[in-house]
Simulated assay, not measured.
Amino acid sequence: MKQTAGDFFGADGTLTDTDRIVLRAPVRSDLASYIGTFAPGLRDAYLEEGEKGQELREGYWSDVMSEGSLFCTIVDDACHERAGFCCIEDLADEDPEIGVRLLPEWRGRGVGTDAVRALMRGVERVSGPQAFVAKIDSGNVASQRLFSGLGFAPVGVDAPIFSDPSLLALIEENSLGLIDDRLRALAKELGVEPRTLLSHALVFRREPDARGTDGPVRRH
């Protein structure tokens, strides 16, 4: 996409809202809630006191506020509490990748689905019909269901984080017990070996003409 983050927010800082949530531009006071969505070990590192923790927080917030990324704070419309955030980390991607993270107490309540739907609607309002992708760990069944319900379909596997073949093999060997019928079926659909899904993220894609964004989204 050719747009930058500022192109998507209205004068009031809102991207879009629904009858349940508001997606708005991030402000510094959101930082704690963003870090609160991280896995425990990573969260502890970012919250560490001292220079190291401060450096991590400042670097992360700089990424969040970059004009080349689109981060939106998810706010509950009824109680006005922060629920987490959703984002497109690189607006330069032809098919932007969507991410969503929620605070633990907001998970399993449909907020993630509402947020991703609203984010896509808000982006398409500016950019026009748009393909989107999501990269999801093979064991994250909840996220797979979320994106599948919004019109995304698995299309392949992402490049692994580690390029060392021996390290990838070790990761897979240590996780072979996780292979079940669901993973075998998914691997067959993607044309890969089941063990490959243990070391690679799944790539889900929603085509521009999909109906996944249908829903009660108010526009500004």
Results as ranks from 00 to 15, higher is better:
V116D: 04
P208L: 08
C86P: 03
D209R: 11
D63Y: 07
A118T: 00
L176H: 04
Y46P: 01
G122I: 00
E51V: 07
Q144H: 01
R101M: 14
E173W: 09
H80K: 11
G10E: 02
P104M: 01
S66N: 09
R184W: 08
G139T: 14
L56T: 04
L146A: 06
S138H: 11
D63S: 13
L168R: 05
L176S: 03
T14D: 09
H220A: 05
M120H: 04
V217Q: 11
L91I: 04
R43I: 05
G156S: 03
P129Y: 09
T73G: 01
K52F: 15
S199G: 15
V75S: 09
L170V: 11
L170K: 12
R107V: 07
R145Y: 07
I161F: 10
T16I: 02
P154W: 06
I88E: 04
L202F: 02
V203E: 05
I179F: 08
I35P: 02
K135N: 09
A210Q: 08
G110W: 04
D164V: 14
R205Y: 09
A5H: 05
D63T: 12
V155E: 13
K52L: 11
L70C: 00
L176G: 00
A201K: 14
Y46N: 02
F152V: 10
L103S: 12
G53C: 02
R218S: 15
E207T: 15
G149Y: 00
Y60N: 06
Y60R: 08
E81Q: 15
E124V: 03
Y34D: 05
L170E: 13
D180S: 13
E49F: 13
R125I: 00
A83L: 12
R121Q: 13
R121L: 11
A92R: 08
T213A: 11
L167N: 09
R57C: 05
R57M: 05
G10L: 02
Q144S: 05
L186E: 10
E207F: 15
P26I: 00
A131I: 13
V192T: 12
V141W: 08
F38N: 01
S127Y: 09
E189H: 15
R219I: 14
S29D: 12
S138V: 07
M65P: 08
G6Y: 05
V192R: 07
L119M: 13
I21C: 05
I35S: 04
